[in-house]
Design a binder for these strands. Structure first.
Lengths: 304, 304
DNA sequence: GCTAGACATTCGCTTGTCGCATGAGTGGGC
DNA sequence: GCCCACTCATGCGACAAGCGAATGTCTAGC
């Protein structure tokens, strides 16, 4: 019981000999000499502690131990072939899995478009997508539990080690107004003009949001309505209860009875949108990143 | 696509690293140095054409390719462990299959007794038994399709190459007589005393049977009744239609209303009964051969 | 009895693998 | 902000394993 056999190229020799019934012809098939095959088989026999072939004057024949080993050796060979096929599929993007993450409003247009293009080109690759806050996705990518994520990282917080950010686009922020609002229909608007409005926000601490520069400049809006949900926010806007910020990427999916007006980037800065990739991105992640860039370029057609 | 990976002790290293998440600790677990594991993993990565681990400052982590390979490597390891267990069971007679052959009348007492003893000692070994003429079994053993056979080979015909005969016993021949026959009840009888009887035989050409020496000496019995089946032969004897030869091993299974009397071995020679084993008998066959010898010794209690 | 064919063995060389020691890079502690 | 501890990678020398070529050994068949 010396231990597990150590090599397995030997199993190719074993299988070839078992198939052909002869060391000599197996050697020919493998491109070896007969002496090499003889020693390989002997080596296997020593490792397994049993004769695998019965030597006969006109060739060899499997012993009982050889017959017992044969299906296992075949299974091992087949399993390794399957592994090879799977790794090849991974490399050629004919298979595998892409674990995607994205923050919420990126899933309105940017990610779905890229995902559709990806599926057209690589239908064999399965894609899973998880929504969530950017910080969470950065952690998941760093931990190797996501292959790629679309995030909107804070400018002053460096990405976790092992994660590289790829800038995709800077997303303008829009303000959603009741359709009858005096500013509705304008091309853009300064924040000061809206300081008298009731602002519907998702976070009471405005200095933690994109409003930070505006707050520093003295902007102190009324923030009586808190809502995290888009449906709720826009419902309130449509009902004339107030105004709210909408990221440009989500503009297309806003209900038609609210008006959207661009805010000057000095007041509410453009939101930086990046792809977060691990240090060693998978082939699928790299391909998807390319499609994300492409989609971002198309979407960038909104700016001046 | 250089070809199949060549070695597989490497897979132990791969699995150990995958489990521990570190080359160093995997090396400790395997009894290797860290550099050895590092190079083993590198070798695997070159064979598979993909990085399997992502090197990080505090250890390593599986890449996508590594994650894909992991279940295959585990399956290979498990399959080899199963093979090892099976070969061990074969060697220790805790498993496996013994393919047995025997000529018809050996299955009356000799083989079943040995088989029962074998099953008591090695209940894990499955035994299959096929009846048939001795020549057929000799061929099957030579062809490796039977592991052991009990045969009654012709004295002047050598066994096929690769088959060795192990003498078990010389079986006397008895004659079955109607219970009321004048010779019934005698200890033994000379064939000449029965030359007037009607002989029930299985083969019209007596010179091809055990009668050969008797025929050479002028024995010319009446052979009006041909029967191959024991039931038929003994039925005819019981009905007083004639007499027939019965091998001693079958004596115990003869119907009680016929008498059995030993024939002098000069008239009808003892039948040689042997075990036929291949050149490299299996462990089970060797064990069974020992039990056959033992059983034969017990059964030999009939002769002088 | 001899020959042909198959496996085993010996020899010398190449290749691979190991341990040891060292280098390079990163994250945490002071 | 610097240093240290910990990780993996690599160069080096020694040893073992595996190879091809040639030779030996055995058996079936003529």
């Amino acid at each position: 019981m010396a231990g597990m056999p150590v090599t397995h190229g030997l199993y190719d020799a074993f299988l070839a000999v078992a198939r052909s019934g002869s060391f000599t012809s197996a050697a020919r098939a493998l491109g070896y000499t007969q002496s090499a095959v003889s020693r390989q088989v002997r080596s296997l026999e020593e490792e397994w502690g049993a004769e695998l072939f019965e030597r006969r004057p006109r060739g060899v024949r499997l012993t009982e131990a050889g017959r017992a080993l044969l299906p296992h050796a075949e299974a091992v060979r087949d399993r390794l072939a399957a592994a090879r096929a799977e790794l090849t599929a991974l490399r050629t993007l004919d298979g595998g899995l892409l674990r995607l993450g994205a923050f919420s409003s990126a899933t309105a247009a940017l990610v779905p478009r890229a995902q559709a293009a990806f599926r057209r080109r690589h239908p064999g690759v399965a894609v899973t997508r998880v929504e969530g806050p950017s910080v969470k996705h950065l952690g998941l990518v760093a931990a190797g539990e996501e292959d790629l994520a679309v995030v909107s990282p804070a400018v002053d917080v460096p990405p976790p080690p092992g994660v590289t950010l790829h800038h995709l686009l800077d997303e303008p922020m829009l303000v959603a107004l009741e359709r009858g609002h005096p500013s509705a229909g304008r091309r853009d608007v300064r924040l000061a003009e809206l300081s008298g409005e009731e602002w519907i926000v998702g976070n009471e601490r405005l200095e933690d949001t994109l409003f930070r520069p505006a707050v520093a400049a003295g902007f102190r809006p009324r923030t009586g309505l808190l809502a995290h949900d888009w449906i709720a926010k826009l419902g309130a806007v449509a009902a004339g209860l107030g105004v709210t910020l909408v990221p440009a990427l989500a503009a297309a999916s806003v209900r038609p009875d609210v008006a959207l007006v661009t805010i000057h980037p000095e007041d509410v800065p453009h939101r930086r949108i990046c792809a977060a990739a691990p240090g060693a991105p998978t082939a699928a992640a790299t391909a998807f990143l390319g499609l994300l860039r492409e989609t971002a370029r198309e979407l960038r057609a909104w700016g001046p």
